[in-house]
Amino acid sequence: MRPASPYGFHAFEDADALAETLADTIAGHLDAALRRDGRAMLAVSGGTTPARFFRQLSQRPLDWERVTVTLVDERLVPPAAARSNERLVRETLLRDRAGQARFVGLWSGTADLAAAAAAADERLANCLLPLDAVVLGMGLDGHTASYFPDAENLDTLLDPATKARVLPVRAPSAGEDRLTLTLPLVAGARFLALHIEGEAKRTVFEQAMQAGPASSAPIRAVFERATTPPTVYWAPSEDKKP
């Protein structure tokens, strides 16, 4: 039996079941925010994992015109690039019913990393905070958002007292320069979910969260500083299905 933990863990038979449940959950939190504040804000991650979830969420019956969607992090590439998180979100989430949502991206058209971070920070200054829901991913090195273990400014990225909303990231393992929401925005979300798939990522996550000396995996720092208990949504990889 797995030990009790200060976070929720939901395991699913496959990625489709996970995507449907996570979409229902996020839609519920956005709807609650709409009823409470008249508007709602969601931050999502990129990569290959969330596409199913995005397609499911795009079909949920919300007042999407009053929902703002932003990114947890972004590569410093234009939206037309295959690696762009904005492109993924536009193609898989901002469609169907969710096509009416407002999108606030992190890309600003400049290759200057510091200038791009400042511009994105300014755009988010005009958004409703705290974030109503954040959906994170995680890499096999334990990074989440763009908090890479080898980032030059990792201490600043994980500083719970930073006033910045967006910071630049340079890390050899990242492959390219990135922009990321800072820890206070991510950990301060009203609802925080981690979406991971595959046995390898489950193992990385559980090792990071083991009791004892603090793990160097950034995902642990986020979970420890979260203002509400995070929830993990996990399914085996598609190629692991019987």
Rank of each mutant, 00 (worst) to 15 (best):
M1E: 15
Y7E: 07
G8D: 12
A11C: 03
F12R: 15
E13A: 12
D16Y: 00
A17L: 12
A17V: 06
A19Y: 08
A19V: 11
L22F: 13
A23Q: 07
I26H: 00
I26N: 00
A27H: 04
A27Q: 05
H29W: 10
H29V: 03
H29I: 01
A32V: 02
A33G: 13
D37R: 12
D37Q: 06
A40V: 06
G46K: 10
P50L: 10
P50I: 12
P50D: 14
F54T: 10
R55S: 14
Q56I: 00
D63C: 11
W64F: 15
R66P: 01
T68M: 04
D73H: 02
D73Y: 02
D73S: 08
E74F: 03
R75Q: 07
V77D: 05
P78M: 09
A81L: 03
A82N: 07
R83H: 05
R83T: 15
N85D: 05
E86P: 00
L88W: 00
L94N: 15
L94A: 15
L94P: 10
D96R: 12
R97D: 03
R97M: 05
A98C: 13
A101C: 11
F103A: 08
F103I: 06
V104G: 09
V104Q: 05
G105V: 03
L106P: 08
W107D: 15
W107K: 13
G109D: 05
A111M: 14
A111S: 15
D112A: 15
D112W: 07
L113P: 09
L113H: 09
A114I: 06
A114V: 14
A114Y: 03
E122S: 11
E122G: 01
R123N: 01
R123L: 08
N126M: 07
N126S: 12
L129R: 15
D132G: 04
L136V: 04
L136I: 04
S146D: 09
S146F: 10
D150R: 08
D150E: 11
E152W: 01
L154M: 05
D159C: 02
D159K: 02
K163A: 14
V166S: 13
V169S: 07
R170Q: 04
E176K: 07
T180D: 02
T180Y: 01
P184A: 04
V186W: 02
A187E: 04
R190N: 08
L192I: 08
I196L: 07
E197G: 08
G198I: 05
E206K: 09
Q207H: 15
Q207C: 00
G212M: 10
G212A: 10
P213D: 10
A214S: 08
P218G: 09
P218C: 11
A221L: 00
A221K: 02
V222Y: 12
V222E: 05
V222W: 03
A226D: 07
T227Y: 00
T227R: 14
P230S: 05
V232P: 08
V232M: 09
A235R: 04
A235E: 06
D239N: 09
K240I: 00
K241H: 13
